[in-house]
Nucleic acid binder design. Structure first.
Length: 552
RNA sequence: GCGCCUGUAGCUCAGCUGGAUAGAGUACUUGGCUUCGAACCAAGUGGUCAGGAGUUCGAAUCUCUUCAGGCGCACCA
């Protein structure tokens, strides 16, 4: 319908001037229903070129527009806006299309089956997942769902830093606990992890527990001096726990990549050798440096420390070369904003490999930090001190649906405040229930009606009259556009906003109007409208990983 | 000091590829259930879009600048 309108406008404008191209014709969705279903400011844009007043130009365009049955009214408003109002014919088409397509409504094939890899969460296996990881999970998974909905072949991936210094630290911490050294004791590792979960791991280790991690059985030896065993068991224990937390958060991954594998497979060495060969390195003060300043960084970075170890970003580069080699022309990394300094380094490293990797590859979505409020005070998150708001706690206390909603309904850029007491105590006032209620409420009416949903549809003779109906229909028709924009901008919060507005209009319509009326045509038309609304809400919720209950 | 992000109603936040009277939730005030689900609806109160300058027919939106907050600027990850 929008494309149709674009054609009409293009035809009309083409009669007036050749100095405009199609891309300059912008068709908006007005916020106010009084301004129609579509509007364009093309007359204002043309006024300078044509040296006429915008309203005169609008009239000229109107005169040149081919006839169409889609709009019942086209008017010139304000400074020279052209407003288009959909008529009964369009209303029928929209609703019947939604009903016909159901769970497919809103989908598109922009991705054309191309591969995209989305990496998110990627927490280190040194502790339970916290609320920040939850935000990454909610946003990353929703972006993945959006891409799937837009016809991409999506790979969800989780990267484990299981080889660095923090793992040694984890091992020492667990060993200390196993030796019954408490965090308060001065013999406890200074930089050690002090959370209670460390003691849990130590106890499980001493009990010679066995656990499954990613399909592999890991057995604790129980030997306090066997640091290799402590290390393997601790990692497996925490990964296992993280996997469970993510499963409870309805977040699943296709691929888990391990930093340790990059060392084992020689990929890290390959990257270092290549960078040396390509001439982007130099030695200074016993260390090997990468000239990241050649690629836009503000200072050069050490790759290989004087003690022989690599700095953390080297395996990161190797990992991303691996992604590239696996054929992902599009890669999106969702991570906390505290890691944003890695962007320039990873990209610089990739450029240095001379593999024709685009400058802006990979793409990044960075979410800002979350401030957690509990009992009216801010909860400081410190892994080492063991002060925590875990994802598991949130899911247990607030629920998966509400937690996912809260964490993905805001722009990634915003430093959101998560008030646990509010989320818990006011769970009935929660926006997510408001949306789900609209879905369940519709189901209630349809059950009351008791007819066969397959027979629903708006007949050609029926014209919707009320403002509430027109608003709702306009909203439903916007869904595919919202999907495109949210996908394009990597911004799933737009879906949440859409759903809230859609639910509000449904509730408003519900109170405004009766559905189960005597007149059969009217009844079917109205039921069709809410049935279509239900489908859209369900599709939108699915994109956020939130359930659409039929009863609440 | 440098870089990135943010500043919109009492609070939490949308709106940011320039468009029409700046919106929602919450809080507060008032009204609506013998009637399809009141976890709902309707109406009202509430704004120097952090401050200033610029660009233009038009700026919350773009540019510059000041202020405030967050996060980064390691031979840590």
């Amino acid at each position: 319908m929008k494309a149709h309108l674009t054609d009409l406008l293009f035809a009309a404008v083409g009669q007036l001037t050749n100095e405009v191209n199609l891309s300059q014709i912008v068709i908006d969705r007005p916020k106010l229903i009084e301004h129609g279903d579509f509007s364009t400011n093309i007359a204002l844009v043309l006024s300078k070129i044509l040296k006429k007043s915008p309203r005169d130009i609008a009239q000229l365009i109107l005169d040149q527009m081919p006839k169409t049955e889609y709009f019942e009214k086209i008017e010139i408003a304000g400074a020279g806006f052209l407003n288009f109002f959909l008529g009964a014919h369009s209303h029928q088409i929209i609703i019947n299309q939604v009903i016909e397509e159901k769970e497919l409504y809103g989908k598109n094939q922009i991705g054309q089956g191309k591969k995209v890899q989305i990496e998110f969460v990627s927490a280190n296996p040194t502790g339970p997942l916290h609320v920040g990881h939850g935000r990454g999970a909610a946003i990353g998974d929703s972006i993945a769902r959006l891409f799937e909905f837009s016809g991409w072949e999506v790979t969800r991936e989780f990267y484990y830093n299981d080889a660095g210094a923090q793992i040694d630290n984890l091992t020492r911490s667990v060993k200390a606990r196993a030796l019954n050294i408490s965090p308060e004791n001065q013999d406890f590792p200074e930089e050690g992890y002090r959370g209670d979960y460390i003691a849990d791991i130590a106890n499980a280790y001493l009990a010679k527990s066995s656990l499954e991690c990613q399909g592999q059985q890991v057995q604790a030896s129980g030997d306090i001096e066997d640091e290799e065993s402590i290390r393997n068991f601790s990692i497996a224990y925490l990964r296992n726990e993280q996997d469970q937390d993510l499963a409870a958060f309805k977040t699943a991954f296709d691929v888990y990549s391990l930093e340790s594998d990059l060392y084992k497979n020689g990929q890290v060495n390959f990257v270092v050798d290549t960078l040396v060969k390509e001439g982007h390195t130099y030695e200074k003060e016993g260390a090997l440096w990468l000239k990241t300043t050649d690629f836009g960084d503000d200072k050069d970075r050490v790759m290989k420390k004087s003690d022989g170890g690599f700095t953390y970003f080297v395996p990161d580069v190797a990992y991303h070369l691996d992604k590239w080699t696996r054929g992902f022309k599009r890669v999106i990394n969702e991570q906390g904003a505290d890691h944003h300094s890695t962007i320039s380094r990873v990209r610089a490293g990739l450029q240095g490999l001379n593999k024709d990797i685009p400058l802006d590859w990979p793409e990044y979505v960075l979410h800002q930090m979350i401030t957690v409020m509990k009992n009216g005070v801010e909860v400081k998150i410190s892994k080492r001190a063991g002060s925590y708001v875990t994802l598991k706690d949130l899911v247990d206390e607030v629920g998966c649906d509400a937690t996912r909603y809260f964490l993905s309904a805001r722009r990634a850029d915003s430093q959101l405040i998560f008030d646990i007491d509010l989320a818990k105590s006011q769970s009935n006032d929660n926006p997510v229930y408001y949306i789900q209620y609209a879905h369940a409420r519709i189901e209630g009416v349809l059950n009351q009606w008791g007819g066969d949903k397959k027979t629903l549809g708006v007949s050609k003779d029926y014209a919707f009259e009320s403002l509430a109906e027109k608003k709702l229909i306009k909203r439903l028709s916007e869904f595919p556009e919202v999907i495109k924009q949210a996908t394009d901008e990597l911004a799933p919060h737009q879906i949440a906003n859409f759903l809230k507005d859609c639910a509000a209009e449904l509730h408003s319509y519900y109170n405004d109007s009766k559905f189960l009326v005597d007149d059969e045509v009217t009844k079917l038309a109205r039921l069709s409208l809410i049935y279509a609304t239900q489908a859209v809400i369900k599709n939108g919720l699915a994109l956020l990983g939130i359930s659409a209950p039929e009863k609440m």
